[in-house]
Nucleic acid binder design. Structure first.
Ligand SMILES: [Zn+2]
Ligand SMILES: [Zn+2]
Ligand SMILES: [Zn+2]
Ligand SMILES: [Zn+2]
Lengths: 146, 146
DNA sequence: CTAATGTCTATAGCCACTGTAGCTTCAAGA
DNA sequence: TCTTGAAGCTACAGTGGCTATAGACATTAG
């Protein structure tokens, strides 16, 4: 059995984050020691490691909740899990495309500035006038993490 | 003079967002009509349009605050503005690199799944075990918007 | 035994909004 | 002129995914 600190170290997750996950019901309530401290099994470590990895891959906690409950039913078909992963891939590709177009605009902006006074600064000018942009870079639609 | 609704339409910004920007001091306090409603000049529209465009390009409100105050001093050199834009470009490039590596992993994951039961699902398996990943995809370090 | 570290709960804060409730004001039509 | 409906007002709560703080209790090493 691991204390919360050891668990956090082992999984690479900060202690308050683990308590937060428990609080929102992503992780089950931990067993407690005689002195009311949380104790975790090896299985709990696997679960938290799964959560961490999925977070690193950009899945939302809601998606992870679903993935966890799917992984608790190994005999079910995996179509639902695959669908979640495909949706995540699509989301990442969407963000990627948007960031790529932002990068183009920002690069152009920075490159075009000759470095005089603010009055002549291309950065300030372009920010004030989207029609100076080379292409579209739609409204930011919740850009999520990483 | 424009009402807040007209201003929002003209700039493509929602009304509550405008009030929020005023509240946090990003926009100056608006003049008021006899009946206490906000009234905006053409200059205010320019300012809000600038803010919107900068947000679309991913600048934080703090960065925009600085950019706005720079653009209020047209005789100063533009190095500070350029530095902010370059930092933003660097940030975007960092996110882009990370998203690109996430995309690779997710694609691999999805492609490798043969579609049987959860017990054999590659998606679930890889999520539980990062060593099955082809490359690194560091810890998510605050991924900001869009 | 004591001191240092770890853990406990509860609460507030972060960013950039968005939504709600319960009012007041305004513009247009009858 | 009266009425209706849209638009505006303030103040506050909620979003996601944590992170930080305060003040009390538990555990462990020396
Ligand atoms: Zn410049
Ligand atoms: Zn633009
Ligand atoms: Zn599968
Ligand atoms: Zn991995």
């Amino acid at each position: 059995m691991l204390t919360i600190g050891k668990l956090g170290q082992a999984a690479g997750v900060k202690v308050p984050t683990i308590r937060y996950y428990e609080q929102i019901g992503l992780l089950p309530e931990a067993e407690r020691s005689a002195g009311n401290q949380r104790l975790y099994s090896r299985k709990a470590l696997d679960r938290l490691t799964f959560v961490r990895h999925a977070r690193e891959l950009g899945f939302t906690l809601d998606a992870i909740r679903d993935l966890l409950s799917l992984s608790d039913h190994p005999d079910q078909p995996c179509a639902a899990a695959d669908a979640i992963a495909k949706a995540q891939l699509a989301e990442i590709e969407k963000r990627l495309a948007r960031l790529a177009s932002l990068k183009v605009e920002l690069k152009r902006m920075v490159a075009q500035c000759a470095g005089g006074s603010i009055a002549d600064c291309r950065v300030i000018e372009v920010l004030g006038n989207h029609s100076l942009c080379a292409a579209e870079h739609g409204p930011r639609e919740s850009e999520g993490d990483s």
